[in-house]
Design a binder for these strands. Structure first.
Length: 118
DNA sequence: CGCCTGACAGACT
DNA sequence: TAGTCTGCCAGGC
């Protein structure tokens, strides 16, 4: 038995919802997003979905980072500096090495995301 | 079909 | 915390 990892429209929508619900000033890992979207282990697929998100969709993709707290490659967000600027603007501080202090800003596994409309 | 790559992650060191 | 290796799966060729 297992969770088939398929990038279905339903999964994509679920990912959008989860990402949209990440509070400003917090970050979530790809794995967390996958889990909350209903398919644990689909972290890489979430990344794939993120890579296809268009700016018009207005999703806070910059709040999704890898578990090490390092930013996305230079070819996205118009450079890491841009993504970093977006996050710092929300109050997230970086270490001297240029990565996020995940212990401090990562959304906790047990923390319920509070949706804007609830 | 196989082979390689990737906005990833867990286990170990 | 950082490297390294391995597992994972979708997609492109």
């Amino acid at each position: 038995m297992g969770n088939e990892i398929k990038i279905t429209p339903a999964f994509i929508r679920a990912v959008y919802d989860v990402v949209a619900a990440i509070p400003s000033g917090r970050v979530a890992t790809y794995g967390q997003v996958a889990e909350r979207a209903g398919i644990p282990g689909a972290a890489q697929e979430v990344g794939q979905i993120m890579s296809r998100v268009k700016a018009e969709q207005n999703l806070p993709c910059h709040r999704v980072v890898n578990k090490a707290g390092t930013l996305s490659p230079d070819h996205v967000f118009g450079g890491q500096e841009r993504q970093r600027a977006l996050l710092e603007k929300e109050g997230i501080r970086f270490t001297g090495d240029g990565h996020i202090n995940m212990v401090r800003y990562q959304l906790s596994e047990y923390e319920q995301i509070t949706l804007p409309w609830s």
